[in-house]
Every structure is written in structure tokens, then in C-alpha cells.
Nucleic acid binder design. Structure first.
Length: 231
DNA sequence: GACCAGGCACATC
DNA sequence: GATGTGCATGGT
């Protein structure tokens, strides 16, 4: 099956199975940026606790975060794991936002996508996934977010091989879909939803909505993977 | 108690 | 340029 058809089919199947995801869960664009850093290699549940800590102290703003002593900030981020590194990364991001855009996410969002992406990636602690999450969900730029679940789902259905890198996968989506912020946001959220439920490191494909894909997918036998039973 | 979670930077070869 | 390692809490 043609790659573009398969990509779009995946979206249809996931949308039908899970419905609208309405990502990113946050009360403000700045909160999304904070969440994007805190969720690095960490479950969202833990991130919520850390964000609640910041909110309860009234620290969820660029100036307040920058002014918070590192040790205090780290202790508030404790539930999110890697709390010392994340405290530093958060401050790096906030200092960049204050320096470049006066701490204003709306002003930030007016910058062209390519420039903004470059700027975000220049921040220590912001890698491609964090940058694209911020670009897509906070700045509303049409860039596709690639995470471990995205990689796993594609690998499992033979759309990429194990050596596929971040940019390759991002290209795969962006070149086969219209550049639509809402579509990209929903698609990424749906990939996380299906990933969480079925496509873990040890997959449990039982009722996975993507089960049918492999049978129609040319070259499926090459990668040797199958949707396995739920046993 | 092991394994995993919506990564990233840095060291080393 | 590829590969390995530290970072850390909380749920299954």
C-alpha cells in the first residue's frame, strides 16, 4: 500500500477508535511549554503533580520561574523525576523566552516556524521532540511531533526500519499530510493514545485498532513483526 | 523488585 | 558519527 495512503489510514483508524484527544492538556500556552520539558521520558501523571506544585505557589510564569532559587524549584519538580536537570532546563527555556520575546508566548508565536525551531533547539535541554511539542501546541506551528510511540507504531507496521532517525520520521508525516496544526496535534495525541494502550516496549496488540494494517501492507513480511495476541 | 514512562546532554571511542 | 551513560520519581 502506498505510504501516503497508509499514513492517512492510520489516522482514520485511530480517530475512529479513540475520538478527539484535544491536546495539549494545559490552561495556557506557557503551561504547555513547561509541560513539554517536564514530560521528557516521564509519565504525564507525574508531570501533573509538578505543575500543580508550581501553580499552588503562583510560580507558573516566566519571571517567577526565573526568580525561584534552583533548589526550591527542583524540590517542587521532584514528582516529575530528573528534578535537578529539569529545573535547570526549565530556567534555560524561560531565560530564552524572556530574552528573545520578553517572556511573551504570543510574541514568540509570531516568529516564523524555522527561526523559532532553531531558537528552541539552541536552548540546553530542548531537543527535537520538546521543540516540536512547543512549536505545535503552544505556538500553533504545523510541525509534526515524533516520540517513542510514533517510532514504535511505524516500526511495527514496517513504515520505517530500526535505524530511522527523528527527522526522517517527521518528514514522513509532514510530506504525506496537509500542514494542518489541528490535524498534526490530534494525530500525535492519537499515536500516544494507541501507544500507551497497545504498543509498549512489549506490545499487547490484542484489540489494537491498527491490527488490520499489516495484512494490507506490502513488505510486511520483511520486518518480521506481527500484531501478536494478547496472551 | 524489575521494568517502564509523551528525552536530552555529554563522554568516549 | 555511533554508541553508552547519568538523570529520578511513581505506577504496574
Amino acid at each position: 500500500m502506498k505510504t501516503q495512503t497508509t499514513i492517512r489510514r492510520i489516522y482514520e483508524l485511530l480517530e475512529a477508535a479513540f475520538g478527539p484527544q484535544h491536546w495539549w492538556p494545559a490552561d495556557s500556552a506557557f503551561e504547555m511549554m513547561v509541560g513539554a520539558v517536564l514530560t521528557q521520558n516521564t509519565s504525564w501523571k507525574n508531570v501533573e503533580k509538578a505543575i500543580a506544585n508550581l501553580k499552588s505557589r503562583g510560580l507558573l510564569s516566566p519571571p517567577h520561574l526565573r526568580a525561584t532559587p534552583p533548589d526550591e524549584l527542583a524540590s517542587l519538580l521532584r514528582p516529575a523525576g530528573y528534578f535537578r536537570v529539569k529545573a535547570k532546563r526549565l530556567v534555560n527555556l524561560v531565560e530564552w523566552l524572556l530574552r528573545e520575546y520578553a517572556g511573551d508566548v504570543v510574541r514568540m508565536s509570531r516568529a516564523p516556524l524555522a527561526d523559532l525551531r532553531e531558537g528552541l533547539l539552541s536552548v540546553k535541554g530542548v531537543g527535537p521532540e520538546t521543540a516540536d511539542s512547543i512549536l505545535l501546541y503552544a505556538a500553533r506551528k504545523p510541525t509534526f511531533v515524533v516520540d517513542t510511540y510514533t517510532y514504535r507504531v511505524l516500526l511495527r507496521h514496517g513504515l520505517v526500519d530500526e535505524s530511522a532517525g527523528y527527522e526522517e520520521i517527521r518528514e514522513l508525516f509532514e510530506s504525506n499530510l496537509p500542514a494542518d496544526v489541528t490535524l498534526f496535534g490530534e494525530f500525535h495525541a492519537l499515536l500516544v493514545a494507541v501507544g500507551k494502550k497497545f504498543c509498549r516496549k512489549i506490545p499487547r496488540c490484542g484489540e489494537c485498532p491498527l491490527r488490520g494494517l499489516l495484512e494490507h501492507d506490502a513488505g510486511q513480511s520483511a520486518h518480521g513483526l506481527r500484531h501478536s495476541g494478547s496472551s
